[in-house]
Amino acid sequence: MKSVLPVLVVVAALIGLWYAAAVPMNVRGVLDEAERAGAEVVPASGAERRERAVWTLVVRNPGAIPATWAQERPRLPAPHQVAAELWDTTAGKSITSKRSLVYHGWVTLSATLLGFAIGTGLGILLAVGIVQSKVMDMSVMPWAIVSQTIPIIALAPMIIVVLYSVGVQGIIPKAVISAYLSFFPVVVGMVKGLRSPDAMQLDLLRTYNASAAQGLWKLRLPASMPYLFASLKIGIAASLVGAIVGELPTGAVAGLGARLLAGSYYGQTVQIWSALFAAAILAAALVGLLGLIERLVLRRMGVA
């Protein structure tokens, strides 16, 4: 609770910086529009203005500053424009409309969740295999670690095209990319977690004559929960990035990635920013939800 005030101050400072940055970013566009509308602009011709630095333009035309926060297609939209667009496209439209961010968000979210479920499921299975079998540990684990240093996302366009050519489309290709991105963090985190019981605890189970399966269910899996949740949080953020990037190369018509792409084609900056913030809110909500589940589970287990 102590950090509420500092966080608010930092956020306010960032928003203030954003408003300040919007002035020099947009001033040229505003002055061009003002000139076309017949208003008084210093210097008067566009060619002359191109010679000047943005700061001199701001100082010479102080009257243009409010207009830089209210342009139709600004280079950098002001925070309230993005907030208005977000509100307009979530609450203002019916959720089945093609222009509703809720609709696009759901398209991305469903692929994210499906991929996340597949990725974490397979990841946990592989981690159990690695911990139980020495051969798998020695042969697979180094590759799992190396694969974390590879920009796996480069595979995204290919996965989509390959799956398309065998007749799979829609949600599945995006989910495959999501699964792929969340898979390795979960494997590495889970292996660490399943190995976290110390020698004393393992010895105790041995004195009980516990089988390997009993050791897994009664000691290793419960002990791995904190590690599991830490890697789940990384995994879901990676899944969301995967689903968004998966929408880029196909020219998808729905989803947050498609909104980003369409916005960048048509110069709709406000639309790009609102899609970006929708993605950020989604990511924050997913990570926050996992954090809540983590707290409940760990408290129920008496760990935290």
Binding site: K233, A237, L240, V241, I244, V245, L256, L260, L261, G263, S264, I272, A275, L276, A279, A280, A283, A284, V287
Partner: peptide
Amino acid sequence: ALPIVGTAP
């Protein structure tokens, strides 16, 4: 934790 790649466009 946010998908910052989205700032690319």
